[in-house]
């Protein structure tokens, strides 16, 4: 039994999601190899070798892998799977794009967004926007599993696995990369932040969102999130969206400002350790899951919160 973990990285650095997928992999087998696919990714591969419990790191480099083209990952990973019983991939937008393609080529089911590995064949995953948990047992010889990073602890550092460079197969001809627009941010990454401050439709405009939510987030060193309503209305960019169809977060502290708490949104944040809701509607569903609720208009509550934070810092 050996398992392959596909790393989440930006070539220069390895992302925490990789460590979390390694933790999930440890429940399946002790023989864990990590695949780092990208371009100029030696640093990420070296970092992967330092994760405790990693046997070997495979480094494959090509422009198409760096661009995250599913066809390139299929060509690389499917032949590799002759040596592995399972492949685990963090359920990022890349993981969700490539994993089902690999599963279909191997003619196996995919286990999507696993939140618990019970044993090598049994997994728990959320369904119906997180309103139910399904325990499934796989009968496939090989497993393709996407792992919800927020559900696992990060594996420790302290390993010393060697890095082996492997060839990246020829580029797929039917699809090509055109361009990429990545939003630059000084703030912590939404998926990995300890504190998240999210705004909802109550903000009323993009200017108001920036005026209210962003300074509060900066004061707390938090990442900024948004409800789907706020994103759809254009108050916040798409990649801020927390929910079933956006990102799933589980920070230590989640502050929901002017968010009513639709099922769809709760699916993305209800595993946060402490949830704070600020909403002027005392009957909003968000208060049913909030640990601390403040029934107040955000227009007054957020400035008060800001000054209370100043006061307590002194």
């Amino acid at each position: 039994m050996a398992v392959l973990v596909i790393a989440d990285h930006d070539n220069a650095a390895l992302k925490d999601n990789t460590h979390k997928a390694v933790t999930a992999a440890q429940k399946i087998s002790g023989d864990i190899d990590v695949l780092v696919a990208g371009q100029g990714a030696q640093a990420a591969a070296d970092a992967a070798g330092k994760i405790e419990g990693v046997r070997k790191v495979l480094l494959a480099e090509s422009a198409e892998l760096d661009q995250g083209l599913a066809e390139a990952f299929e060509a690389l990973v499917v032949p590799l799977m002759a040596n592995y019983d399972a492949v685990l991939i963090p359920s990022t937008s890349l993981g969700k794009n490539i994993a089902p393609r690999i599963a279909a080529k191997l003619d196996v089911a995919q286990i999507s967004d696993a939140v618990e590995v019970v044993d090598a064949n049994t997994f728990v995953r959320p369904i119906y926007a997180g309103n139910a948990l399904e325990t499934v047992q796989s009968s496939d010889a090989k497993k393709v599993i996407t792992v919800r990073p927020t559900a696992f602890k990060a594996a420790a550092e302290g390993g010393s696995a060697s890095v082996e460079t492997i060839a990246a197969p020829a580029a797929p001809a039917k699809v090509k990369f055109v361009e990429q627009q990545i939003v630059q941010s000084e703030r912590p990454e939404l998926g990995a932040a300890k504190i998240v401050v999210s705004g909802g439709r109550a903000m009323g405009s993009a200017e108001e969102f920036q005026r209210v939510i962003e300074p509060l987030a900066d004061k707390l060193g938090a990442a900024v999130g948004a409800s789907r309503a706020a994103v759809d209305a254009g108050y916040a960019p798409n990649d801020y969206q927390v929910g079933q169809t956006g990102k799933v977060v589980a920070p230590d502290l989640y502050i929901a400002v002017g968010i009513s708490g639709a099922i769809q949104h709760l699916a993305g944040m209800k595993d946060s350790k402490v949830i704070v809701a600020i909403n002027k509607d005392g009957d909003a569903p968000i208060f049913q899951i909030a640990d601390y609720g403040l029934v107040a208009d955000y227009k007054t509550a957020v400035p008060e919160l800001m000054s209370a934070l100043d006061g307590s810092a002194k």
């Binding site: 049994t122 796989s138 208060f287 640990d291």
Partner: peptide
């Protein structure tokens, strides 16, 4: 390919409290 062994409810969160002011909240 997958056998569903069971479908359960996710753990319920403990009841929260409402605070009066931002000061209390902090």
């Amino acid at each position: 390919r997958l056998k569903v062994l069971k479908v359960t409810e996710p753990a319920k969160r403990g009841g929260g409290i409402k605070v009066e002011t931002a000061q209390d909240l902090v």
